[in-house]
Simulated scan of single mutants.
Amino acid sequence: MLLLADIDFDAAAALLARYGLQLHRVADDAPIPGSYWGDCEAGLIGCNVYARGDTPVHSLLHEAAHLIVLPPERRAAVHTDATDSIEEEDAVCVLQALLGDALAGVGRDRVLADMDAWGYTFRLGSAKAYFEHDADSAWQWLQARGLTDAQRRLQLA
């Protein structure tokens, strides 16, 4: 699994900053604030995403995507659990793969493979199959919120 320590922290922070988020590096031996799953999984508090060197990149991108899909006025109230609905969760799974494409040395294929290794489950058997063949409603959800469009979808496919 690709970890935060394996990629350029500053590039990840710059990506999140484009969406009004701040990435905080947590000391390796410290608990991660706002982590829903605990252990090494990324955490959320307001517009802040917390991660350690051993945080999986897919976790960091997933939690950041939860904040990205929220209107800025709702972000301030987020602490640990940002999910609003199944539809949001599905859209966040697509968005985290797209965010992976924006980071050198990561890419959507790695994000999707790491999602499978972590234990995500999808009807078609893998995150990649979901992304490529079963995520139409997630694409529509993102598009309705101005987070992607059909042209961008084709460019990234």
Rank of each mutant, 00 (worst) to 15 (best):
D28W: 03
P31A: 15
I32L: 12
S35R: 04
Y36D: 01
Y36Q: 08
W37C: 00
W37S: 01
G38C: 06
G38N: 06
C40V: 12
C40P: 00
L44C: 08
I45A: 10
C47A: 15
N48R: 07
N48P: 00
N48E: 06
Y50M: 01
A51C: 12
A51L: 09
R52E: 09
R52D: 12
R52S: 14
D54F: 04
T55Y: 08
P56I: 02
P56G: 07
V57C: 12
H58N: 13
S59V: 04
L60Q: 10
H62C: 09
E63M: 04
L67H: 07
I68H: 08
V69H: 03
P71T: 14
P71E: 15
E73G: 12
R75A: 13
R75F: 10
A77W: 07
A77F: 09
H79S: 14
H79I: 13
T83K: 14
T83P: 01
S85P: 06
E87W: 01
E87K: 06
E88V: 03
E88A: 13
E89F: 04
E89Q: 09
A91D: 03
A91Y: 02
C93I: 03
C93N: 15
L95M: 08
L95G: 05
A97E: 00
A97Y: 01
A97I: 00
L98I: 02
D101Q: 05
A102T: 00
A102H: 00
A102R: 12
L103W: 01
L103Y: 01
V106W: 04
R108P: 02
R110Q: 14
V111M: 03
V111T: 03
